[in-house]
Nucleic acid binder design. Structure first.
Lengths: 233, 233
DNA sequence: AAACATTTTTAGTCTTACCTAATTTCTCCC
DNA sequence: GGGAGAAATTAGGTAAGACTAAAAATGTTT
């Protein structure tokens, strides 16, 4: 039973988008609301209701009317297959075709529905089995396992501590360009200098003498791990 | 005026498939019949009639009812854009991702509708501006120009002459595998030994002492150029 | 030129997936 | 416990793109 849970083939582009969105929204396991899906996919809530009925009939999710939805195992497996495709594509486009981390998302978003499993596995082979995409997100395995990320938002790290920048959402190109302009590339280490109250900005020091002030919203999107001084040796 | 004729963006997958099929069928300039399109795309003739009406309304082709269709300049440009994508993809998948010439077609067929122009141009850059796809078909330029091919079917080459294998359709994987198994790779030189009448088989000699007998249908699909003995120096 | 065959088009359905508008359900507050 | 407001669903419509069956145009034969 170790293998994948019969990932259903031949899902429509729309179906794949819904499953992916529901998976992303329901990462914590709780039920996902219609309005959240509507917002994520930029469609009217009524359209979502209609699609949820079809997806529930196909046993890809369970729908409790007026309450929300939850992916079934086959639904989750199908969603993770798309997530794998998306992240492998982002990795490949970045490493082999010169894309920047702010422009790959859009391209991967279209390609993920068109590539074959074989092509994805060929890309994986060329890349040497990458574990994370260019934004630090873990790439699910072929059988649908995904690494648990235990990252902390920058807004929750106490001043004085050192941290490493580990992950950020790939959705907004402008934000990604701005982050890079601050000197924050994946794996960058920095010290938290100050944190203003009431959702105020966070000040960090990326390199000796260079401080950056980061607004709360942006800081909250930066996922980090706290660096233990002298971790090795 | 030198540039492309305003290639319309945002065509549906179906629309792109129709334009590509009509372009391929109408290579000689004559009108293309409904039934030919239906057969090429494996849809009912009635479905083709419906789509032709939409395409004519969009000014992508001219439709004379009961007679046939012909692409307009914008239609031809759009078709050549798809052909370019398809052939660049086939070249890239073969050269960079280890696909064989018999398996690339299917993958390219799906990807051609999903890739951006930017990705295609990036692939072109990695490949060093290839002029032909893995089956010898010319790759249209970005502005929609395409090389005229003046190849001869193997069935029309007289015994005693030497020829070079230049191009073959990418559609049938089994046929491609068989062709390769005969020692016929693109650019291979051979001598025509014998040609039986009444659409009979053609015998060729690929290497000293090794003769191959090729059925008429297959031989007709092999496009070649006649080799002039001692062409250089 | 009439009759038959072929090709194409029209007519009428179906499915997917979206929309707006109207209704229903849930939640929260008084 | 009743009502206001938010959220979700149903109802009814549109567009693309496919289908089958029936009708019309074209071509071929005698």
């Amino acid at each position: 039973m170790g293998a994948a849970a019969a990932a259903p083939a031949g899902l429509s582009r729309s179906t794949e988008d819904y499953l992916k969105a529901i998976y992303a929204l329901g990462a914590e396991g709780g039920p996902v609301q219609t309005s959240a899906i509507a917002e994520a996919l930029e469609v009217a809530p009524a359209s979502v209701s209609g699609m949820l009925k079809r997806l529930a009939e196909a046993r890809l999710l369970e729908h409790v009317p007026y309450r929300g939805v939850q992916l079934t195992l086959p639904g989750r497996t199908a969603a993770l297959r798309i997530v794998r495709r998306h992240r492998v594509l982002e990795s490949y486009l970045t490493s082999q075709l010169g894309y920047d981390w702010d422009s790959v998302h859009e391209e991967a978003e279209r390609l993920e529905h068109a590539v074959s499993d074989e092509l994805i596995e060929r890309m994986v082979r060329v890349l040497g089995d990458p574990q994370h995409d260019p934004h630090g997100a873990p790439i699910p395995s072929r059988s649908g396992e995904i690494e648990e990320t235990a990252h902390v938002p920058l807004t929750e790290i106490d001043p004085g501590l050192c941290a490493e920048f580990r992950m950020v959402s790939d959705k907004d190109p402008e934000r990604l360009r701005y982050i890079a302009s601050l000197g924050l590339v994946l794996g960058a280490e920095f010290e938290v200098i100050e944190r203003k109250p009431f959702r105020g900005p966070v000040t960090i020091c990326v390199r000796e003498g260079i401080q950056q002030v980061i607004g709360y919203e942006l800081a909250a999107s930066l996922r980090c791990t706290i660096v233990v001084e002298g971790g090795a040796a």
